[in-house]
């Protein structure tokens, strides 16, 4: 990032008072701390996460509505008048019923959806699900990608051939097509593996689906890095000293792969939020009455002409979150990836 301060210019980067050099992780964290754009992005993300976590508080004490319950006959006080949440049309032939628009007050701040539910409250609950799915799917993805990438790269030979071809097959599917296919089957029927059953409406399904489809995208770079590390001098030295392979794997290879994985975290989360929204928009992600930003956009699709805020609000939330994650991801990459030093600044 152009506005990032070089670690060499920071007092902490020079080392501790005792003269012991800092660990690479600490150096990277310090570098990230001085990356203004990344820190602003991180602050925005923290604010979004905290706000979404407070959804039940908002629904109970501020809006006073149940965001999962239809309120088609509800009325609220606006300017001393009781007005219906779903207002019948009074123009022309008097056709149609329109949900209340944004009041910018405590109740129905962003208006109501087609079921008379408070959009603001659903936006916060939806954010919880979107962030939860994106975060958990990222962990699932990184776990399997690391497992496959490290195993493949470290053991090589037949193991590498089999796992690499498996990744090739997975990669051959257009990612959304694969996600949609899996979702249609699993969301409709649920998933039973031995004694374990995941219900069709469970959030574990979108987490698993999104986590799995992106495995090749992370596993391949990890495998490449492991192969490169295997040929590095310090690993060859360890082999020469007769150190057991498992020790080399866990103490020489894995720590060096970790930085790559850290760089992937915000980027994968951003990607996962967009994917989750897309699946939920197609009704094959989060299932009603639960909400995610994608489902709220989908619900608002039928109100685009009269109440665009129902779709626009979660759209804005997605844009801000994904933008923040990408900016933070750039900062993390600059901080943790040594190659970033080679970039023009």
């Amino acid at each position: 990032m152009t506005d990032a301060t070089s670690p060499s210019e920071t007092p902490a980067a020079a080392g501790t008072a005792t003269g012991r050099p800092q660990s690479p992780f600490r150096r990277a964290m310090v570098k990230l701390w001085y990356d203004r754009a990344a820190m602003i992005a991180a602050s925005v993300l923290v604010a979004i996460v905290i706000t979404c976590l407070l959804a039940p508080v908002y629904a109970k004490y501020v809006s006073g509505t149940d965001p999962f319950r239809s309120s088609l006959s509800a009325k609220i006080m606006i300017d001393g008048k009781r007005v219906p949440v779903m207002a019948p049309s009074t123009e022309g032939l008097g056709l149609g019923v329109t949900p209340i628009g944004p009041t910018f007050g405590a109740k129905y701040m962003l208006g109501a959806d087609t079921q008379g539910r408070d959009v603001a409250a659903r936006l916060l609950y939806g954010g919880r699900n979107s962030l939860l799915i994106a975060g958990a799917a990222t962990l699932v993805c990184l776990f399997f990608a690391t497992l496959i990438g490290v195993t493949s790269g470290f053991f090589g030979g037949a193991t590498d051939v089999v796992l690499s071809r498996f990744l090739d097959v997975l990669w051959a599917f257009p990612v959304y097509l694969l996600a949609i296919s899996l979702s249609i089957i699993l969301i409709a029927q649920g998933l039973t593996i031995g004694p374990f059953t995941i219900e069709s409406g469970s959030l574990l399904l979108p987490i698993g689906i999104i986590g799995v489809i992106y495995v090749p995208y992370v596993a391949r770079p990890v495998r490449g890095q492991v192969i490169a590390l295997k040929r590095s001098e310090f690993v060859l030295a360890s082999i020469g000293l007769g150190i057991p392979r498992w020790r080399i794997l866990f103490f020489d290879i894995l720590p060096n792969v970790t930085t790559t994985l850290i760089v992937f975290v915000p980027l994968m989360m951003a990607l996962n939020i967009v994917t989750e929204s897309a699946l939920s928009f197609l009704s094959i992600g989060v299932q009603p009455p639960d909400a995610s930003w994608g489902t709220i956009i989908q619900e608002g699709q039928g109100l685009l002409y009269n109440r665009p805020m129902v779709s626009v609000a979660p759209g804005i939330a997605i844009v801000i979150t994904v933008l923040a994650l990408n900016i933070l991801g750039d900062g993390v990459r600059d901080a943790f990836d040594p190659r970033s030093k080679l970039r023009p600044r």
Partner: peptide
């Protein structure tokens, strides 16, 4: 539903 007021 959202198009009815417009049509009417």
């Amino acid at each position: 539903a959202d198009r009815l007021p417009e049509l009417g």
